[in-house]
Amino acid sequence: MADIANIVGSVIIIIGVVFIVLGAFGIFKFKSFYPRMLVGSKVDTMGSMTIIFGIMVRHGFTFFSAKLMLIVILILVLNPLVSHIITKAAYESGHPLVDYRKNAKNTENKENTGNIENIENIENTENTDVRE
């Protein structure tokens, strides 16, 4: 019985580790801030919660698992809150929504305002403050 719990918990832990490695890959894959936040926050919260659930399955129905449940609830409440507040603070302080590395290449078209129609032409336009 303990062997079955060990194997099931270990498989759940491996699923969580795969989630977190995909989150790390997303952090280094995307070069702008908002896609990075989109990928990183959700995948990372899910992976950590899955790892702690696997440890709960391995340990059984004990006091240790009750404390782990408290940590899972804290992560579930607080980590999306932190991601939301960091993104909202970045947006309100004027972090550009368009990739800033493309600014140096193309500076001809200065009429882009970041509307829906212009998103397909982003590679040919200049990065301006899109909220104005």
Partner: peptide, 19 residues
């Protein structure tokens, strides 16, 4: 903001390491 995002992930990983 990228540094702050990565720092929040580091703190989450440290929690998992302690567990």
């Amino acid at each position: 903001w990228d540094r702050l995002l990565s720092m929040s992930m580091v703190s989450l990983k440290v929690i998992v390491v302690i567990v």
